[in-house]
């Protein structure tokens, strides 16, 4: 099923895709994200716009996506199940499509406990797999979530999901990925990979089940600025694995930021050779300016052009 997504065209035509991530600001100006969009637009094929990531109140993902699209970069809107019920999700996504958004990433969302509104009520009316299923059905069968028909102009998103090879139970992670594909996910972005060995085992299981032939998998990477950042991810973020040797390498480095970039480039080069991986998703958290260099030095520049 074709959509107007440029990312889908690239992936379907067999290109190794590059996506990045832009985190909207904690204020009401789009100046910074527009700046980042201009900086990234020739280096990546599309960019995710996070949806109040880690439950911190930020400028809306959909609004930010419109700014980014305006700057000539294709946005992937993230939609979490944490903050909206099925009424709000549908309404916001109809709106997003009307504003020219063509890619959607469905996730559960981080629990609000560690955000800046820990006393908020969470929603979780539907979960991420149900969201994928319902959005896919909305597009392909022209039905609202309730089953009521959409008479015309159904939103036609290219639908993505996330997978975390580093969460538990490990054996079930590939099965759950398959469940997301069954539900209708067409591309997958993974959690940031630091434990390459575990990721390779994950991909092996993916290939055994033939999942890589049914969905485009983009491997997530994150350049680290310091050993403290690595240590933080290692100890304080549930569902992350950061091997000690990465922490050590950053600790020993004379210029840790440089070293972080080098590690990331090495990871991308390695990932490109893993069968079944169709792209890379660079999450330079609050460090968007290093993405062009990483893309270029990983041999992924220039980006292919599609209609």
């Amino acid at each position: 099923m074709k959509t107007e997504s440029k990312l889908q065209k690239l992936l379907d035509s067999g290109h190794f895709a590059v996506t990045a991530e832009i985190g909207p600001p904690k204020h009401a100006s789009a100046h910074g994200i527009r700046h980042h969009a201009h900086m990234l637009k020739n280096y990546v094929d599309a960019t995710n716009i996070t949806d109040c990531q880690t439950a911190i109140v930020r400028l809306s993902s959909i609004a930010a996506a419109v700014h980014i699209r305006d700057c000539g970069l294709e946005p992937i809107v993230q939609m979490t199940c944490r903050d909206r019920n099925r009424i709000a999700i549908q309404s916001d996504l109809l709106g997003a499509y009307s504003l020219g958004i063509r890619n959607l990433l469905c996730l559960s969302g981080d629990h609000q406990k560690f955000g800046n509104e820990p006393s908020a009520k969470n929603v979780y009316d539907i979960d991420s797999i149900q969201l994928i299923y319902l959005m896919r059905r909305m597009r392909d069968e022209k039905l609202f979530f309730s089953g009521e028909p959409i008479k015309e102009h159904e939103p036609r998103f290219f639908i993505g999901a996330v997978a975390n090879p580093f969460a538990d139970p490990f054996e079930f992670r590939v099965a759950r990925l398959e469940k997301k594909v069954e539900a209708g996910a067409e591309f997958i972005q993974t959690q940031c990979i630091f434990d390459m060995e575990r990721f390779e085992r994950f991909m092996e299981m993916v290939r055994e089940r033939g999942i890589h032939e049914r969905v485009h998998i983009l491997a997530g990477v994150t350049p680290l600025k310091s050993w403290r950042a690595a240590k933080y991810l290692q100890t304080s973020v549930s569902g992350m694995i950061v091997p000690d040797d990465i922490v050590e390498r950053l600790k020993k480095a004379e210029d840790p930021k440089r070293e972080g970039i080098e590690i990331c480039i090495e990871q991308i080069k390695h990932i490109r050779n893993i069968p079944g991986v169709h792209g890379v998703h660079i999450m330079a958290i609050a460090w968007e300016e290093v993405v062009p260099e990483i893309v270029e030095r990983s041999g992924l520049y220039p980006r292919p052009k599609v209609e």
């Binding site: 979960d127 991420s128 969460a167 538990d168 079930f172 549930s238 569902g239």
Partner: peptide, 9 residues
Amino acid sequence: LNGPCGGSQ
């Protein structure tokens, strides 16, 4: 209803 999420560790 279709868990576990990616935060389970």
